[in-house]
Design a binder for these strands. Sequence first.
RNA 1: UGGCCCGUGGUGGAAUUGGCAACACGUCUGGCUCUGGACCAGAAGAUUCCAGGUUCGAAUCCUGGCGGGCCAACCA
Length: 834
Amino acid sequence: MSEKEHLDFIRQIVADDVASGKHDGRVLTRFPPEPNGFLHIGHASAICLDFGVAADYGGRTTLRMDDTNPTTEDPAYVEAIERDIAWLGFEWEGDVRYASDYFEPLYQLALRMVEDGFAYVDSLSESEIRDHRGSVREPGRPSPYRDRSIEENLQLFRAMRAGEFPDGAHVLRAKIDLSASNMKMRDPLMYRIRHAHHYRTGDAWPIYPFYDWAHGQSDGIEGITHSLCTLEFQDNRELYDWFIEHTRPSVAQIDSLPGAEGGGSEDLGSWDPRPRQYEFARRNLDYTIVSKRKLLPLVEDGSVSGWDDPRMSTLAGLRRRGVPPDAIRAFCDQVGIGKADNRVSVGTLEWAIREALNPRAPRVLCVLDPLKVTITNYPDDGIDWLEAPYFPRDVKAPPEDWPATRRIPFSANLYIERSDFAEEPPSGFKRLAPGREVRLRHGFFITCDEVVKDGGGEVVELRCTYDPATSGGSSPDGRKPSGTIHWVSADASLPAEIRLYDRLFKVADPYEGVEDFRDNLNPNSLEILDAFIEPSVAEDPPDTSYQFERTGYFIRDRATRSVSKVAGSNGAGAHAEAGSRLVFNRTVSLRNTWETTVYLEPDVAITSVLEPGVTVGPVPEPASETGEPTIGEDTGRLARDRIREESLPLQTSFERFQRELGLTEEVADLLSASPASIDFYERAIAGGANPEAVANWLLNKVRGAESKEGPAGTRAAGESSLEPEALGALVDLVESGTISVTTGNDLLSRLVADGGDPREIVDREALGRLVDRARIRDVAHQVIADHPEEAGRFRAGQAKLAGFFVGQVMRATENRADASLVRNIVEESLNEAS
RNA sequence: UGGCCCGUGGUGGAAUUGGCAACACGUCUGGCUCUGGACCAGAAGAUUCCAGGUUCGAAUCCUGGCGGGCCAACCA
């Protein structure tokens, strides 16, 4: 992958880890699909990330089948997944891994959890467990079996494993916290009893681990360093970490693994490297579904012809549609990765496809919707084989294994595209019309002399004359026709079936406004055309991607169709298989700026019509008389007021802050929210620092500095080494002008991290404020000289660039300069220097 | 009166961690062309969800509000 100056947030984390020498700088990621369906374009994004991140940092990626649910999985899916990833162009580390290969070590690990008292066997029914779990609003209740002895748990769990109980009789649960606000932590299930046949382990196991238990431990077993998954697993991360921290793996347990290196039975104590989970937003594509579970019903109910139906967003479908793998990779690269919900336009995918195909797809002629043209001044039984280049001049490096030209037949009977003729041409129309001349691509100029219609008034034939002097596309007299159109000989072309695919769903968001997303299926997503194509294609390799000139990119489908009607033929189509015709899938149309495709961005049009002036949120309701918080009210303030009503000291401080210290009500409110907060503030101002300034620092900057995270994943939330007295001293230093505000900011982060006395640090490091006008002016001049372009733009009126120069000067003086002074001097210097 | 996460042009997203709101797709001009494609040149499009606050300076920090997503499967 090319070096980018910008790193997405995942790569930033990995880059930091590598730089800090975590795991000795090793990176191992994993792609863990469940083999219960085909991979789709959404997975492509995850695959590109998992494999791409590792590759960027010299790491590797394992492919792991997350096959812990025997009832949904199938070896056919395993095969499809491997095929699709390989096709996409990625190579996984070693053999394919299977979670099912880890069933034994997982079980051993679980046994230890039971021994250590971190897991218990619960014998409640499924619905009872659900009931005991409580809701998001109410805490759960412990199961009556929660306090079984370790011995009993051990014996029961072993019996579960031995197959002594029927399905549903017991489960193994982690013993965590039934009242956790995170539902995932309310004693999550680790194992269920399921007497089911697993496609790999057969009937060896009557119990199967759940995702949360299996996944993190599998990461540990494989030595994964960065475990990337989608946003909906954010709540699971706390559990992931809990499991990682509470297991005690030993070499013996993972020794039974295929490919294990062997080696004793000593305790590993913990997983090393310790895997960490990071989440990113899944990629949604408009007019498309990216969910294996939603795609399955389409396959099952016959809405599509299979997982590889070219309308499907599956990699297999895209492949059959003719989308090259590098286009998908380019697309994933282009949209990148983030944490915000999104819906990418399919236009972006189409762009990537055209970009990939344009330089390498040979151009051929194919008429999709034929209109008969008779050349009246050409011999009826004549035929000319014209030499035509496969690539236009602007394709600089056509594929070397493809010939430069082919021959195409010209005869008295031709087909042109019905849309390339207009009896009454609109203005700007550059194609054929009565009396007009156009160029046939790679052929002659023709002029339309006569329009033949059927009884219904529909045009059925054009009678034209050609100019024999224009062979090769130009006329000796130098005249230029208004346009160039594609065509095909009716006497010597091949009949072809063309399948045009439109989006599978009618609306950008298939889940919008319906209970069943299938109600949003586009009934016209497939259009089949009887077309004619130049005969050269019959001899080409079957998987060739073409550009049909002026229409789009197409690929030959593996299917052939028997001829439904005999095409006008004199045997020139002899290369085609007798009695059959070729089938082509349209991969994507050409970009079309003439016929503005109405369907292209309908959602844009619709929103602008439906929501003309809709502004932000709803109008706040007036407060209700019950005093209950209503929308728009400051509920935090209400809560604090209520607490103060019941606590005299709090209320006293609240009032004193306002009356004696002159703080605003809002500031006093925040400061008097808790005894700890009041105490901290009182101690900070005890040294004589300006109360108002201290309050502002405390409320704004200190909170900001404390919430800033350290190196990814290692943040110790709420931990601060800042002493109140130090804050008071710091504020005093700034207020008295001893140090600059910016130095104060820097110092604050250091105090929060490491503690200390600001006065000492300032003395020791000579951080005193720089107010020497001459010094600052020197620096400013230097900065201006170094940035002539910006200086010019400032003088041209871009006033906000002053901030840029202030920043540069501050940097040059290590933040010691007085910023107001700097701004002053910078603006002065900028103006005088002109 | 739950927890967690997320709001930057139409779309996806940058902003070197408080100092010029990048880039790409799309749109619109103009040029070139034997493809109304490609290519070349240019333009338009953003009070960074809102309101306050801190700061010389805020997309970024603080407070509150609004909006969206996920979580109560013996699925993953």
